[in-house]
Design a protein around this nucleic acid. Structure first.
Lengths: 212, 212
DNA sequence: CTTTACAAACCGTCTGGTCGGTTTTATATA
DNA sequence: TATATAAAACCGACCAGACGGTTTGTAAAG
């Protein structure tokens, strides 16, 4: 086996093991020894790939971010032509993806924040860019953010193991969040002037609607 | 000093210390020694009040649940007469309260899930009841849940230290979530029959206002 | 005098990290 | 092609400190 791919396989095995441990035993049980046991590597082997535990967490985070970045850009390419708010659509789809896939890589977030909260700076930065993009394109920025927040609520509360919702409900709620048509009724102007709330902006929104 | 109150003061000091540690250093740094240091008690003293670390976590959780329970019932009493959906209103207000107060007792949740995810069963159970109540009273149950999910998204993402929102934005978004008038435009029937989406159901929802 | 609240030293285990050595792969030379 | 050599991947014993928890002792409350 090629040396580079050997390394990569080991790194991968370690990170997969880490995620499995977090999902099964909780983030508090994520130790270097546990990773070694779970991955089949020796502790020395793990330490050769990651010089410290923080390095593991960082790699986990970056891996997860890269994964969703990829998903995002692919989805974005699909909808950017047809949707009036492709950034929001993409983010909602991405969050749904994260919430749906079992052993979601999003568990990396939990682990990072447990061990070293300052690691959250990276994902937070990325999140800010995305929110800005969502605001930018939205007829009603706050409403767009609230739809995004709704998706995050569904994701995080299930990640926390405290979501009281069934799979079906989850799916249905996400579907509604994604569907622009269902939110067109109450868009409000971007602030600036007062304006009569519902009627005017609703008409405006309806006129530019574009459904698949 | 009375013996009972002496105990209570110690217990309290330990729990306060625990929350301070979680907020400052992250849940991974919450140890019995740290609690002893932070609270001024000796480790023996802490262990006298809580026989195990899990007992600390449990007490922390129960304390937090009791706190928000109290807030909830008080708020509920205020609005139950005037609001068509007092449960939703109360939950939104409670979540806002949790998100707003610094060193939110909600940090107990994070700590619990780190150390022993199964502890989340208690809050999850309580949450299910609340969601059921919200659904019950809502003209458009899914929309109500989504408003609740939005609030949770704002809370949890700031709890995670990954909220990109400013205080002002936070406040404004919560205000909009709470304000029923801003959501009246797009209510949809409780499923059952199909119905023409926006216009018809909006009118219907408006007409039936209060039913309970 | 008994019970309760606390202190402090202590114990076995686990944790993150180090280190010397072994095996596997890559490269150079003949 | 065979061989010597360097470099990378990997192993597993080891270490110091931190961890959850126990034990023993003491002062205050009842």
């Amino acid at each position: 086996m090629d040396n580079a791919t050997r390394s990569e396989r080991s790194r991968n095995a370690a990170l997969e093991a880490a995620i499995a441990i977090i999902a099964r035993d909780g983030p508090g049980r994520l130790t270097l020894d546990a990773i070694a046991r779970e991955s089949g590597l020796s502790k020395g082997g793990v330490m050769h790939q990651f010089r410290t535990k923080e390095a593991v967490l960082k790699a986990l985070l970056e891996r997860q971010m890269a994964h969703f970045e990829e998903f995002s850009t692919a989805y974005m390419a699909k909808v950017s032509a047809t949707s009036p708010n492709p950034n929001l659509a993409t983010q909602l789809a991405t969050v749904r993806e994260a919430a749906t896939s079992p052993n979601s890589a999003a568990l990396a977030l939990v682990a990072a924040m447990v061990e070293n909260p300052s690691l959250m700076a990276l994902p937070r930065g990325r999140e800010m860019e995305r929110m800005a993009a969502i605001r930018e394109e939205a007829a009603d920025p706050d409403l767009a953010i609230l739809r995004w927040a709704g998706a995050m609520g569904l994701l995080l509360s299930s990640l926390f193991g405290m979501s009281p919702l069934s799979k079906d409900e989850h799916q249905r709620l996400f579907a509604r969040l994604v569907d622009d048509a269902q939110w067109a009724g109450l868009e409000r102007p971007a602030a600036k002037r007062s304006a009569k709330p519902a009627a005017a902006s609703a008409a405006k929104a309806a006129s530019k609607r574009k459904r698949a």
